[in-house]
Design a protein around this nucleic acid. Structure first.
Lengths: 193, 193
DNA sequence: GTCTATAATCAGATAGAC
DNA sequence: GTCTATCTGATTATAGAC
């Protein structure tokens, strides 16, 4: 599959990866052709060679980030308790996801792409949890959709606050959620992400 | 109290209000002196008269938005079930809060101001819920901190997705959370916000 | 594929007139 | 308080050389 790669794919991919990095570490307002070119060591006009407009770049970035994320979740779900995956995985990159959602609110064409991935993520997560609950019959009195949403949004909120240095009440929340939705602690997910 | 208002406070306040509006409807990347001046019908240099730098403006905006939000919560908690308030109130303006949090990640001076309000909001919310649980002794097996976090972050996630037109599973999640954390439905909050 | 050169627009910020 | 004028630098984007 690496042989079918067309020429020019290298710099293109470098630009996309650099864009994700800039969005995550400096915010989407800092995303510019200058900043990206600087990151990959080329002149800024190179961005317009691979992506006519910055919007085209952004769409490519969203697709790249979305596919990568879906693959990570699929892999994690296959080898670990989906509940723990949802609880522990979003921590790293939730800021990037928030940035895409924020951008989507102000551009219809970006919104279309983002919502596509939001729904794909949700479907994947709900199915994994439903499947897991069906196998191990638990005492959780909540539908899979609610479990997914609680684990993911609370986890993201905790991560978001922690990235600002705020952790008031986090330990209490963390252990309460784990007592409510996660069991025993027999399985660990410290092996993949 | 309206009599003690210094001259010049009018345009200043208009600019702050306009800034919140721009951040909410167009995103913080669209916030500029040009855009604000246009909104209040003045020339763009007026922004630098009231706020030396855009950073100063942003700090004033955060304080304005924070104080206003705290007041709204205090008022709502005084006259309605705090659980329902947390569940139903953030919907309108959660995007603005997310924007401030995103900005705070990339500027230490803004971060200091944002975290101050994050903690003030949290304290207010936890205290209101704890007080409410102490009065009406309920069967919820969760500490106030966890109840606050679940209600608020799930509510914000639902609102965030809904603003993009995504509502897959929302009804299921909504009724599950209400069954888990909200009771009877005897009291309604459809009277204030 | 990557470069130089160039265009038009917009950004924040300051000085000074009224 | 609000204005005009001005500066400096960043932005996206295109045309064309190599």
């Amino acid at each position: 599959m690496a042989a079918t790669r067309r020429p020019g794919e290298e710099s293109r991919t470098l630009l996309i990866v650099a864009a994700v990095e800039v969005i995550n570490t400096e915010g989407y307002a800092a995303l510019s052709a200058r900043r990206l070119a600087e990151k990959v060591g080329l002149k800024r006009q190179i961005v317009h060679y691979y992506f006519r407009t910055m919007n085209d770049l952004l769409l490519a970035v969203i697709r790249h980030y979305g596919e990568e994320g879906l693959a990570r979740f699929r892999k994690a779900f296959a080898s670990a308790d989906p509940l723990r995956v949802l609880w522990e995985m979003p921590a790293d990159s939730s800021a990037t996801s928030f940035a895409f959602i924020a951008m989507a609110r102000h551009s219809p064409v970006i919104r279309a792409e983002v919502t596509r991935y939001l729904e794909a993520f949700r479907d994947l997560q709900v199915e994994a949890v439903a499947c897991h609950l069906a196998r191990h019959h638990t005492a959780i009195p909540l539908p899979p959709e609610a479990i997914v949403m609680i684990l993911q949004s609370v986890s993201q909120s905790l991560a978001s606050e922690a990235s600002l240095g705020v952790d008031r009440g986090h330990e209490i929340v963390r252990s309460a959620i784990e007592k409510l939705l996660l069991f025993g602690g027999s399985e660990s997910t410290s092996d993949g992400f």
